[in-house]
Write a protein that binds this DNA or RNA. Structure first.
Lengths: 257, 257
DNA sequence: TCCTTAATTTCGCAT
DNA sequence: ATGCGAAGTTAAGGA
């Protein structure tokens, strides 16, 4: 499982280590220690000398973490090229990709640990409770939005994007429904307005098109803009309450701090 | 620098290790090996048995990585509580937080490596070339957008959000400028339209308010909607050309694969 | 705290 | 490749 581990490696050893294990593309490589990081591409950044943890995965994706926070300080989603070399008595790593063209450069001033791990088998992964699932439920039960509603399409593509639900109401008027899994924002109102305009453009003049924003809640500014534009809001409780995972929240004996 | 390292630890040893080092809040903890992960909170997810890498940082943020991809398979931005315990002869870790209430549970079936690292000094961090910098440059040189433009405000707050640049043109008409650092999308057009409406609402009736979207490029649908709404586009090259980092792209001797 | 926006967003899907 | 929108988005900043 541990392919190789080095402690306080020399620049040469570290460069060898990095080149060998990144090329084999079958293990996860990490180096922790004092380093300096620069990025240039979509933006440009420099991280001062500090203690960081660099992780390179099998697909060549690279991330450099500082001591706190969920997001890496620097990263590269997938690299075309990773090269380590010794330059002026330090090991330096260059990770680059095209499209967009960008480059991450790491200078390892005092590498403390280098570790190559085999992460062989990845199990299946299932996520439940996304907006897609909410859409499916409401498509099957449109009466939860409004009695008499009949769904014509799901994910109907118009030039301005995809309409979550396209329907007709009890009076035969066309209805555009925009779903939000969480609290609806002004962004959602803009989206809905755009879709309504698109549909109106496709129908004969004077056809009435209703726009309904369906979400568990809505922000105050969004509500104002919605009413201002003659659109409607329907409160829809977040539906798919997943069956509680083994040992639900609320039974931890001790605290993190 | 390595606080402690365990190889193929027993469930009891691993639980002790995790509890001790997560509580001290001064090191980065990681465990690699065969595990099973479930999440419940904003959504719900299950990862079948597989080989994963779990990292817990000093602030209690947790991420579990599978072999590929930049994003963790499961994560928790900052936990209120992290607890490890032995249950049915395996070590199990519970990481939870409130607001939103969510829980990550990791069952370590065959832990291979457990490592506690000190990542002491974090370097300062500088990022350049963001939209903020573009805004500053254009605020100081509004003639790059249009001759005769005078900037009245930057980041002017209106009820619908913040206007990047608020200005008057050579004819004295008010101008709302929305900046995008990258390619402008429909989203940016909606934003601009919202701001123009807000400003029109504050001015005497019939006042003319121009809306200008300034970006290096614009998508076709966005351009259509922009013109449809009587708004304007100005091409502005991505200004802050960062001074090339040492050893810019295009000089790698060898490829990643 | 709520709300909005930026992000080197990433990711996936459709054209 | 481009365009669009979701995401368990995260993170920052103002009201």
């Amino acid at each position: 499982m541990i392919r190789q581990q080095l402690l306080t490696p020399s620049p040469e050893d570290l460069a060898d280590f990095l080149n060998r294990h990144t090329r084999s593309r079958d293990c996860l490589v990490q180096v922790a220690g004092l380093a300096e990081v620069t990025y240039q591409g979509r933006a440009a950044s420099t991280a001062d000398v500090g203690t960081y943890l660099m992780v390179i995965k099998q697909d060549g994706s690279l991330q450099i973490h500082h001591p706190t926070g969920i997001k890496p300080m620097n990263w590269q989603p997938k690299t075309d090229s990773i090269t380590a070399r010794v330059d002026e008595d330090v090991c330096m790593l260059l990770a680059s990709r095209r499209s967009p063209e960008e480059l991450v450069q790491v200078v390892f001033l005092e590498p403390q640990v280098a570790l190559a791990l085999e992460l062989a088998q990845a199990g299946g992964f299932v996520l439940r409770g996304s907006e897609a699932e909410m859409q499916q439920t409401l498509a099957e039960h449109p009466e939860l939005i409004e009695p008499g509603l009949r769904v014509l399409n799901r994910e109907l593509m118009v030039e301005s994007g995809g309409i979550d639900l396209y329907a007709r109401d009890a009076q035969g008027r066309y209805v555009v429904v925009e779903l939000k899994w969480g609290r609806a924002t002004q962004h959602a109102v803009s989206q809905l307005a755009r879709y309504v305009r698109s549909v109106e453009g496709k129908l004969p003049a004077r056809a009435v098109v209703r726009g309904i924003l369906a979400a568990p809640s809505i922000t105050t500014p969004a509500r104002l803009e919605l009413e201002d534009r003659g659109l409607e809001f329907r409160e829809v409780s977040a539906l798919p309450q997943a069956t509680a995972a083994a040992g639900g929240p609320g039974a931890q004996p001790s605290l993190f701090d």
